[in-house]
Write a protein that binds this DNA or RNA. Sequence first.
DNA 1: CTGTATCCTTAGGGATACTG
DNA 2: CAGTATCCCTAAGGATACAG
Lengths: 134, 134
Amino acid sequence: MTNKFPQRSHCPINYALESFGDKWTLLIIRDLMFNDKQSYGDFLASGEKISTNILADRLKRLEELGIVTKGAQAPNRSKVAYSLTQKGRDLLPIMLEITRWSGKYDADTYASRSFLMRLEQDRDKLIAAIRAGW
Amino acid sequence: MTNKFPQRSHCPINYALESFGDKWTLLIIRDLMFNDKQSYGDFLASGEKISTNILADRLKRLEELGIVTKGAQAPNRSKVAYSLTQKGRDLLPIMLEITRWSGKYDADTYASRSFLMRLEQDRDKLIAAIRAGW
DNA sequence: CTGTATCCTTAGGGATACTG
DNA sequence: CAGTATCCCTAAGGATACAG
C-alpha cells in the first residue's frame, strides 16, 4: 500500500516537521494542553483566528496521526470533546522548551515572568507525570 | 515603524511558530547543530532536497531573526560559513526533545537506538553547556 | 560556490454561506 | 454546535537557467 504520509527523509526532526510543522497545528495542541479547550468552537475562538476549513483539516490530520482523539460525545449533546492521546501528551516537553525559548527571546510574549518561573519549578514534575502516563 | 514580522498573537508557542514554523527552517538548524554543515552547498545537499530559492530565503530570514550569522569568509575564498548565534544554540533543548519524541513514535526514524540512548545520557550535559554559552 | 531570477504549479488559507 | 463546501487569492515551493 502507498503511505498516506510519505516522508522526505527518515530524520527525526523531519518526522516532527511533517507531523506538526505548519503554522496552526501546535496552536491546537497548545489549547488542548494548557488552555482547557476541547471543542471545535473553543479552538475557533483562540486569538490567532484560525478559519473553519483549516481547523477541520488539522483536527482530522491530528487524529490520523494518533495525536488527538475525538471523544465519545454524550448521546443527546452536540458537543464534541477532543483530547490528547499519550502521543500528544508526550509533546509536553517540547512545548515547555519552546515556551522557555520564546520567553527568553520574545519581548512581547504573554508568558509572563511568573508563569515562566513556575514552569521552571514544575517542569520536571510535569514531565515525570507525562512519562508515567498521567 | 511597522514591524517586519507582525505577530498573530503574543503567545510563546505562536512566537516560535512564526520563527521556525515551516517545513524547512528547522532542517537548516539541524544541519548546523548536529551535522557539521555550514555552507550553502552543504544545506543544498541534505536529504530533503531543499531548492535554491527556498534555502536563500530561509537563511536570510534566520539572519534577520538573529538565529544564524553569516560568517566572515576568507578574502580569497568563495566559501561562506553560516553558524548559529546564542539564540540559535538555545534551540538545542527543543531539538533534543523533538528527537526523543520522534524516536519514540516514528518507526522509521534514523535516530538509531544507540543515538537515542546517548542522547539520554548526554542531554543534561549538552544543555548545561549551551546555557553556559558554549 | 553562492546565490538571483524566472516561470509555473500546487498548497495554504481567508471569507462566507450553508447543512445535519 | 460542529462541521462542509465554495470561491478566490496569495504564499510556498519545485525546476531550471543564469550571474558574480
